Amino acid sequence: KFNKELSVAGREIVTLPNLNDPQKKAFIFSLWDDPSQSANLLAEAKKLNDAQAPK
């Protein structure tokens, strides 16, 4: 279960257009550290992506 959630969340995070590479890497490392938090980490990444969207 975690492997699928981890890969789905990881793929989504790397495609978020408004995150820079260090931010993406930080989220990916957090996913590896605790795969059970993949849904929460993906939600946080999406929030940050939205907040950094060009206005």
Rank of each mutant, 00 (worst) to 15 (best):
A39E: 13
Q52K: 04
K55F: 05
A45Y: 00
N3D: 14
L42R: 02
K4T: 12
A9D: 05
N49I: 02
P35L: 03
Q23H: 00
S38Q: 07
D34K: 03
D34P: 01
P54Q: 10
W32A: 06
F2G: 10
N3I: 13
N40P: 04
N20R: 08
N20C: 11
L31N: 03
K24I: 07
A39I: 09
P22G: 14
I28Q: 03
V8D: 14
F2S: 11
N18I: 01
S30G: 08
F29Q: 15
D34A: 04
D34N: 08
D34R: 00
P22N: 15
L41K: 03
N40H: 12
T15E: 13
N40M: 12
Q37M: 07
F2L: 12
T15H: 11
T15K: 14
T15V: 09
A9K: 05
P35S: 02
N3Q: 12
S36Y: 07
K47E: 08
N20F: 06
P22H: 15
K25P: 06
K55G: 10
F29V: 14
L48G: 00
A9P: 02
L42S: 01
L6W: 07
Q52E: 05
A51I: 12
P22D: 15
N49S: 06
S30L: 15
K1A: 13
S30C: 15
F27S: 00
A51E: 11
Q52V: 03
P17I: 05
N18G: 01
L42D: 01
S7M: 15
F27C: 05
S36M: 07
L6N: 04
S30Q: 14
K46F: 03
A45Q: 00
N20M: 07
V8M: 11
K24M: 02
K46S: 04
A51M: 13
K25C: 15
K1G: 12
N20K: 09
E12S: 08
N40E: 11
D50P: 02
A9F: 08
K47C: 11
K1E: 14
D50N: 07
F2H: 12
V14I: 14
R11E: 10
L42M: 05
N3T: 13
A53H: 06
F27A: 00
F29K: 15
I28S: 02
S38L: 14
A51T: 06
A26D: 13
D33S: 10
K25S: 10
L16R: 02
D50C: 07
F27T: 00
A26N: 11
N3F: 14
S36D: 08
P17V: 06
L41N: 01
A9H: 06
L42Q: 03
S36W: 04
S7Y: 14
R11N: 08
A9M: 11
R11F: 12
T15G: 12
K25A: 14
Q37G: 05
V14Y: 08
T15M: 14
K25W: 15
I13A: 01
N49C: 04
V8A: 13
Q52D: 02
S36V: 05
P17E: 07
K1P: 12
L31Q: 03
F2E: 12
E44Y: 04
L48Q: 04
W32L: 11
E12A: 11
F2P: 11
I28D: 07
S7V: 15
K1S: 13
F27G: 01
S38G: 13
D33V: 07
E12M: 13
P22W: 14
P22Q: 14
A45S: 03
A45V: 00
A39Y: 05
P35K: 01
I28R: 00
Q37I: 05
N20Y: 10
D33F: 09
F29L: 14
R11C: 15
D50G: 07
F27I: 03
N49H: 01
K47L: 09
D33K: 11
E44A: 10
V14E: 14
D50L: 07
S38K: 06
S7N: 09
A9Y: 06
L16M: 10
L19G: 00
D33W: 09
N20G: 05
G10A: 15
R11Y: 13
G10W: 15
K47N: 06
F29T: 15
I28N: 03
L19C: 04
P35N: 02
E5T: 08
I28E: 08
A45K: 00
E5Y: 06
N3L: 13
K1F: 12
K55D: 10
N20T: 14
K24T: 01
A9G: 03
I13R: 00
V8P: 10
E44F: 05
G10C: 15
Q52N: 05
A26G: 11
P22I: 15
D50V: 06
E12N: 06
L19Q: 00
L16I: 01
L19I: 04
S36C: 07
S30N: 11
K25I: 11
K46P: 01
A53W: 05
K46V: 07
F27Y: 07
A26Q: 12
I13V: 03
N18L: 00
A43W: 05
A9N: 04
K47A: 13
V14L: 14
D33E: 12
V8F: 09
A53G: 09
R11M: 13
V14K: 07
N3A: 11
K47I: 09
R11A: 12
Q52L: 08
E12C: 12
I13D: 01
N49E: 02
D21W: 15
L19P: 00
Q23W: 02
N40Y: 10
G10H: 15
P54K: 08
T15C: 15
P17K: 07
K47P: 02
Q23N: 02
Q52R: 04
N18T: 01
T15R: 13
E5N: 09
K1V: 11
K4L: 07
K24W: 03
L42W: 03
E12P: 01
A51P: 01
W32H: 05
D34W: 00
P17M: 05
L48H: 02
N3S: 11
S38R: 05
D34C: 11
N49F: 02
R11H: 11
